[in-house]
Amino acid sequence: CHSECLGNCSQPDDPTKCVACRNFYLDGRCVETCPPPYYHFQDWRCVNFSFCQDLHHKCKNSRRQGCHQYVIHNNKCIPECPSGYTMNSSNLLCTPCLGPCPKVCHLLEGEKTIDSVTSAQELRGCTVINGSLIINIRGGNNLAAELEANLGLIEEISGYLKIRRSYALVSLSFFRKLRLIRGETLEIGNYSFYALDNQNLRQLWDWSKHNLTITQGKLFFHYNPKLCLSEIHKMEEVSGTKGRQERNDIALKTNGDQASCENELLKFSYIRTSFDKILLRWEPYWPPDFRDLLGFMLFYKEAPYQNVTEFDGQDACGSNSWTVVDIDPPLRSNDPKSQNHPGWLMRGLKPWTQYAIFVKTLVTFSDERRTYGAKSDIIYVQTDATNPSVPLDPISVSNSSSQIILKWKPPSDPNGNITHYLVFWERQAEDSELFELDYCLKGLKLPSRTWSPPFESEDSQKHNQSEYEDSAGECCSCPKTDSQILKELEESSFRKTFEDYLHNVVFVPRKT
């Protein structure tokens, strides 16, 4: 048989008469490798580009789960590009990614509803959504962080984005990388972005840091009482949809009607710091009717980097990364020049730590249904340095008659930039024990000054392991946590139920 035959053949030295091919099969003959313009397919066939392209389009058009959109890589027609490569849609070739590779997620039936953290986790790592997304989240724990972890990498949506009755959302900033909504599939009414009845939605994105392009379709905003109209108009300008909307697409009466839409800028007039305090004062603000001013709200939190936005980490279910302080308005003076500047002394802060701070007014709604208010920009203030805590785990070892090696770990709280350490030492008198000992005694162990690591005695271990207080009263049991108490109650309830079950099964009433 021919060298490319495997198993047997019907005619000697003829690659077209093989029972099976050793390498690849091409047009009725066995070959060692697939010549151009053919590609290896499933490690035994040679196919042309049209064959591989037909497989790709067949799966793409069917949208069946589990099928493969075949691509070409290293002269092979394979189910998908290997790690580190992405497909070129024009020629199906796998090309190296520039940075992290995109991950295209194809949605069944063309859309997916995100109504819980669990459903959001199914899209973790996706960068391109081939379909439409509907966000409908009523509640949950730590929602802002969970949504950002699972949806934060999405850069492109081919269909539309719909935010509907998501009472738990305060902001859409968890879509931190969303840059493009194509609108290839539109919501009824030709809408590519749809926001309806979101009672706590206050911000779409921080438009000073976020760009969003909507290729096709219109915007729809109705019944978002805490979303200011200025935020919607800003989205029109940034996304390129200005002029597409009709009169009733953006409701003037049901958007922002319960919001404090600040239209003035508060400026800080005085800032002073110490290692654990920050004193702030800002310019006074009074609405047209000074009785509408209820006070100020001061927001602050630790910020290692200057990239904080107002609604980071917030949701309507209680999660809030900001510390909020309510401040009463100052006494009002008739003389504008003698107006008191409101302020606040922030206490209990960490030394040498940068804080993000902003302040906003708290006002009631005027009778004319106009909203007044003022808010400052987010500023960054760093507390002063102070003395560091003591170095940890000092170790001293003498390696000769004239040297001592000293080692330690950095302090747990540096409280500033540590530039150097101060080492103090003092000579001590020799131990009298060394002169009084009889060095001729056998088995004498000389006193040693070398360091030995501390260890816990058996008594201390027994005390720590004991669940009861000892007789001397030195140790006591740790208080039980809520989960331990709940577990004990469940076990007790189970024992009672099981005992009742045994009584009912074992003891049967005697027939009379």
Rank of each mutant, 00 (worst) to 15 (best):
K103M: 06
V104R: 01
H106R: 12
H106K: 09
L108I: 09
L108T: 05
L108Y: 08
E109G: 14
G110L: 14
E111R: 06
T113H: 15
I114A: 02
I114N: 01
D115K: 14
S116N: 04
T118F: 13
T118K: 12
T118W: 13
A120C: 14
E122G: 13
L123E: 01
L123W: 04
R124I: 15
G125M: 11
V128M: 15
V128Y: 04
V128R: 15
G131A: 07
G131C: 01
S132D: 10
L133V: 12
L133A: 04
I134H: 08
I134V: 15
I134F: 14
R138P: 03
R138L: 05
R138V: 05
G140I: 08
N141H: 01
N141W: 08
N141T: 07
N142V: 08
L143Q: 15
E146F: 04
E148T: 13
E148W: 01
A149Y: 06
N150A: 05
G152H: 10
L153N: 10
E155P: 02
E155R: 13
I157T: 01
S158I: 10
S158Q: 08
S158T: 09
G159R: 02
K162Y: 07
K162A: 00
I163F: 12
R165F: 15
R165V: 07
S166V: 07
Y167T: 11
L169A: 03
V170R: 04
V170Y: 15
V170P: 07
V170G: 13
S171G: 06
L172S: 03
S173K: 12
F174K: 00
F174D: 01
R176Y: 05
K177R: 12
L180Q: 08
L180Y: 12
L180I: 14
G183H: 01
T185V: 11
L186M: 10
I188L: 10
N190V: 14
Y191C: 15
Y191D: 10
S192R: 00
F193Y: 05
Y194D: 09
A195V: 06
A195P: 00
L196R: 07
N198K: 00
L201N: 00
L201F: 09
L201C: 05
R202V: 10
R202S: 12
L204V: 09
D206A: 14
S208F: 13
H210M: 09
H210T: 00
H210N: 03
N211W: 09
N211M: 12
L212W: 01
T213W: 08
T213N: 07
T215E: 13
T215P: 15
Q216T: 11
G217C: 07
L219F: 08
L219H: 03
F220L: 09
F220R: 10
F221M: 14
Y223G: 07
K226W: 13
C228V: 05
C228R: 15
L229A: 14
E231Y: 05
E231P: 01
E231V: 13
I232F: 00
M235E: 00
V238Q: 13
S239L: 12
S239V: 08
S239M: 11
G240N: 04
T241W: 11
R244S: 04
R244N: 06
E246P: 13
E246A: 05
R247T: 08
R247N: 05
N248W: 05
D249F: 06
T254C: 14
N255W: 05
N255L: 12
N255G: 06
N255S: 12
G256D: 05
D257M: 02
E262T: 04
N263R: 08
N263E: 14
E264W: 14
E264Q: 07
L266T: 05
K267V: 11
F268K: 00
S269M: 05
I271Y: 06
T273K: 09
S274R: 14
S274M: 12
S274W: 03
K277M: 07
I278Q: 00
L280V: 15
W282E: 00
W282I: 08
W282G: 00
E283T: 11
E283K: 07
P284F: 15
Y285T: 08
W286F: 05
W286Y: 09
P287K: 03
P288M: 05
P288D: 05
F290C: 00
R291C: 14
D292K: 04
L293D: 04
L294V: 00
G295R: 02
G295L: 11
F296S: 06
F296R: 00
M297P: 01
F299M: 10
E302A: 07
E302R: 13
A303M: 05
A303Q: 12
P304G: 03
T309L: 08
E310V: 02
F311Y: 14
F311C: 02
D312V: 11
D312P: 15
G313P: 03
D315E: 03
A316E: 15
C317S: 03
G318L: 15
S319F: 11
S319D: 10
N320H: 10
N320A: 10
S321Q: 05
V324C: 07
V325W: 06
D326V: 02
P329F: 09
P329R: 14
P330L: 13
P330W: 14
P330N: 09
R332T: 12
S333I: 08
D335T: 08
P336L: 11
P336I: 07
K337L: 06
S338C: 15
Q339L: 11
G343D: 13
G343P: 03
G343F: 03
G343I: 09
R347A: 02
R347E: 11
Q354A: 07
I357Q: 00
I357R: 00
F358V: 11
L362M: 15
D367C: 15
E368T: 14
R369S: 04
R369A: 04
R369L: 10
R370S: 04
R370N: 12
R370D: 12
T371H: 09
T371P: 12
Y372V: 07
Y372A: 02
S376F: 00
D377G: 12
D377K: 15
I378T: 09
I379H: 05
I379L: 11
Y380R: 10
Y380G: 01
T383A: 02
T383R: 00
A385V: 08
T386W: 12
N387T: 05
P388W: 01
V390G: 02
D393L: 08
D393Q: 14
D393M: 14
I395Q: 08
V397Y: 09
V397I: 09
S400C: 08
S400M: 04
S400P: 10
S401Q: 10
S401Y: 09
Q403I: 02
I404C: 02
I405W: 03
K407V: 11
K409F: 08
P410R: 12
P411N: 01
